[in-house]
Simulated scan of single mutants.
Amino acid sequence: MTRRPGCPFDPPEELGHLRSEHPVAPMAYPDGHIGWLVTRHDLVRAVLADKRFSHRAELTHSPFPGATLSAKPRPAPPGAFPSMDPPEHTRYRQLLTGQFTVRRMRQLTGRIEQITAEHLDAMERHGPPVDLVEAFALPLPALMICELLGVPTADRAEFQHHMAVLGGMGISPEDKVAAFAAVQGFMRDLAAAKRVQPTDDLFSGLANDSDLTDDELSVIGGILMGAGFDTTANMLALSAFVLMSHPDQLALLRADAGRAVEELLRRLSIVPGLHRAALEDIELGGQLIKAGQTVTVSIPAANHDPHQFADPDVLDLGSPATGHVAFGHGVHQCLGQQLARVELQVGLPALFERFPTLRLDVPAEEVPLRTDMMIYGVHRLPVTWDVV
């Protein structure tokens, strides 16, 4: 599905039509599997909360072209907890949950403010124009997750390249396997180093205070690194894009950054969808989902459901976005959501306070969108501002 030209912040119109007419619709997957697409908010939450829908890698078919590492679905490797069900998923999740509490993430606010200020200072010294992705949106979450995991920042660029390959659509399985192996090797070496010389970081704690093997640690580390900067970086950049297009909303951002960020998360919905496999025959929205069929839930469609959100296609940073599913729902809800919230709540107001005249340096239709990636956003965001 494609977005309407000139409407980079709106979901494809076809999703809205399906939500109204066929909220549980048959869908052909790239590998030929015939499954389902769910678009209504209440049904999306129902799927994500229902234990009869599995997230096991060997049972699900990906809706994204070229997303899997092999032609046939295979079990997740040890440590790949997002692609597991309880109790395997629970074991890993419990080890990590204590590291990502609301309290701990809020304690990081000072460091996030410092990193934000440093990059805004660098932007100011450089002067306009700049690519906001490279100058601000990417380094803020990248540096934070590197510090949390104890990853040398000098290795960030190489790691970022491998994660881009893994997150791309239409990339060959061979290239994905090579990128996965490179990430796993990097994180395995890091785990071994942390066992010998631990430092004050999350990865050292996992390596020395748990029974995780180096193989498990390498996979967990890669997942946390990838999720820790790609999603937030694209939320920062796309949020800046939409705010420059709606400058009337900046006062609401300053007044209540927490509420504003929730509305941005709902409105932009950069994760296109999540998929699960039915473990048994299940009735959903008047349709029979047969055991073994994969169900994909559309996050943008759910977050733009008019039965859940008033005027869902209108950006209103003062409106409550209660119940949005930008971070998923149920036992697999995003582990790092509190960190992402703090980074957005700190970074976005600071950006527009420092550069109140921030604006695009190219026509909006020339901004390159990430329609070729599994996480939506922008590849680049050329911006300028008035120098006083």
Rank of each mutant, 00 (worst) to 15 (best):
R188C: 10
A257Q: 15
A71Y: 11
H119Q: 04
S298F: 07
V367Y: 07
I282D: 15
D311V: 15
A46F: 06
D361H: 00
L236R: 07
I270K: 04
E283I: 15
T213S: 09
F81M: 08
G285P: 10
F9H: 10
K176G: 15
H329K: 01
T109K: 02
L120H: 09
T294L: 08
R370Y: 08
L95I: 13
E13F: 09
T90V: 15
R91M: 15
D256K: 08
L18G: 14
Y29K: 03
S269T: 03
Q184R: 11
A25N: 04
A137C: 15
M163D: 11
E134T: 13
G32S: 08
R266M: 15
P63D: 11
E263L: 10
P30N: 05
M144G: 06
D155H: 13
T294R: 05
A350F: 05
A233V: 01
L212E: 01
I220G: 00
A364S: 11
P75D: 10
L138A: 04
A237F: 04
A25S: 04
P23T: 05
G330V: 09
R266D: 13
T90H: 12
T231C: 10
L166F: 14
K72P: 15
L317W: 01
F9A: 06
P382V: 10
G328Q: 07
D316P: 00
V133N: 01
R45N: 12
L48W: 10
D372Q: 15
D211N: 05
A49K: 13
D361A: 00
P129N: 09
L217H: 00
L15W: 09
